[in-house]
Structure formats: C-alpha cells, structure tokens
Simulated scan of single mutants.
Amino acid sequence: MRHIATSTAENPLVPIAARLARVRAGSGLNQGQFAERLGFPKRTYLGWERAETEPPIGMLSAVRREFGIDPDWILHGPGDIPRRHASEIDWERLQRLQEEIRRYAYQIGLEPNGAQLLDLARAVFDEAPEVEEAALSKMKQTLKALAKGKV
C-alpha cells in the first residue's frame, strides 16, 4: 500500500485535499455523488481527496459552478470554513454589517470614515454566516479597546 503524506511539508496537496473534503462534507454528498456533480469519475476524485493526485483547473471551475465556492479558497485557504465565490456576494448582508458597525462605533465615540467602515464590515463579512455573530462580537470588542486607547 502506498504511503500518503499527511503534512503540507511532505505533500503540498494535503491542504487542498482537506478543503475539498470540507466542501464535500458540507454538501451532504458522499464521494461518488460529489464526484458526479463535479463531472469527474469517483476514482479520480478520490485521488484528489486523498492528496494522491493534483486536481486539474477544471475541478476548480466545477466547484465554483456547482457549489459556489471560491476556487482561490480551495487552493490557498485560509480557514476551515469554505469561502463563497465573490460573484455570490450577499450585498444586503454586507450593508447590514457595515451599518451595525457604524452605529456601534459612533455609540462608543469613534467616527470611522467610509473606507474604514467598509474594511471593518468586510472583516466580519469574510467569515462564514454561521459564525457572523461571534465575528461581530469580536469586532465590537476590538473597537471598544480602540476607543479606550488600548490598541
């Protein structure tokens, strides 16, 4: 049986394989079903998920098309939560976050400009919606520390 590398230093495909497996698990599909949705044979897909073979660029396009996942996230990360492809930006969510951060900043005596507000909102927005509340709470703690001169 062939030894499969388990670290990035041994095999640079390991992080890609882990992110692919994360997308598949999040889709609720088994490996065969996932491979079929991507338009590849199961055996081919298994090689990618096991970090045995390098996936072709067409796989990145298929993951974006079928599951709305950013191909750059598949290749480089960061994090364990799949990042959505930019064309599927939820503009209403981004605007809501920006407004909530603006209100909170003003409430504690900060007056960030538009570009700063957008940067702050994007930092929260870039987190998955499932962890938005925690990310927003962390952002508010950071703003509070900034207002108190502790940052």
Results as ranks from 00 to 15, higher is better:
Ile4Ser: 08
Ala5Lys: 07
Ala5Pro: 08
Thr6Arg: 15
Thr6His: 13
Ser7Val: 02
Thr8Gly: 05
Glu10His: 04
Glu10Tyr: 01
Asn11Cys: 12
Pro12Phe: 06
Leu13Thr: 11
Ala17Leu: 05
Ala17Thr: 08
Leu20Tyr: 07
Ala21His: 01
Ala21Gly: 05
Val23Trp: 00
Gln31His: 02
Gly32Met: 08
Gln33Pro: 06
Phe34Gly: 09
Phe34Asn: 14
Phe34Thr: 06
Phe34Ile: 06
Glu36Ile: 02
Arg37Ala: 13
Gly39Leu: 09
Lys42Tyr: 15
Lys42Leu: 11
Tyr45Ile: 09
Trp48Met: 08
Arg50Val: 07
Arg50Ser: 14
Ala51Ile: 03
Pro55Thr: 11
Pro56Leu: 03
Pro56Ile: 00
Pro56Gly: 05
Gly58Trp: 09
Gly58Leu: 11
Met59His: 05
Ser61Cys: 01
Ala62Leu: 12
Ala62Pro: 14
Phe67Glu: 06
Gly68Trp: 04
Asp72Thr: 03
Trp73Arg: 00
Trp73Ser: 06
Ile74Thr: 12
His76Pro: 00
His76Ala: 13
Pro78Tyr: 00
Pro78Val: 08
Pro78Ala: 03
Pro78Arg: 12
Ile81Arg: 15
Ile81Lys: 13
Pro82Arg: 03
Arg83Gln: 14
Ser87Ile: 01
Glu88Pro: 00
Glu92Ile: 04
Arg93Glu: 15
Leu94Thr: 08
Gln95Ser: 10
Gln95Cys: 02
Leu97Pro: 11
Leu97Thr: 10
Ile101Lys: 00
Arg102Thr: 12
Arg103Phe: 09
Arg103Val: 05
Tyr104Glu: 12
Tyr104Ser: 04
Gln107Val: 03
Gly109Val: 10
Gly109Glu: 10
Leu110Gln: 10
Pro112Lys: 04
Ala115Met: 10
Gln116Val: 11
Gln116Phe: 08
Gln116Pro: 02
Gln116Met: 14
Asp119Lys: 09
Ala121Pro: 07
Ala123Thr: 06
Ala123His: 08
Phe125Glu: 04
Asp126Lys: 03
Asp126Val: 00
Ala128Gln: 05
Pro129Gln: 08
Glu132Ser: 02
Glu133Lys: 05
Leu136Tyr: 13
Leu136Cys: 09
Ser137Tyr: 12
Lys138Pro: 04
Met139Lys: 14
Lys140Glu: 13
Gln141Ile: 02
Thr142Trp: 11
Lys144Leu: 07
Ala145Pro: 07
Leu146Lys: 14
Gly149Lys: 07
Lys150Arg: 15
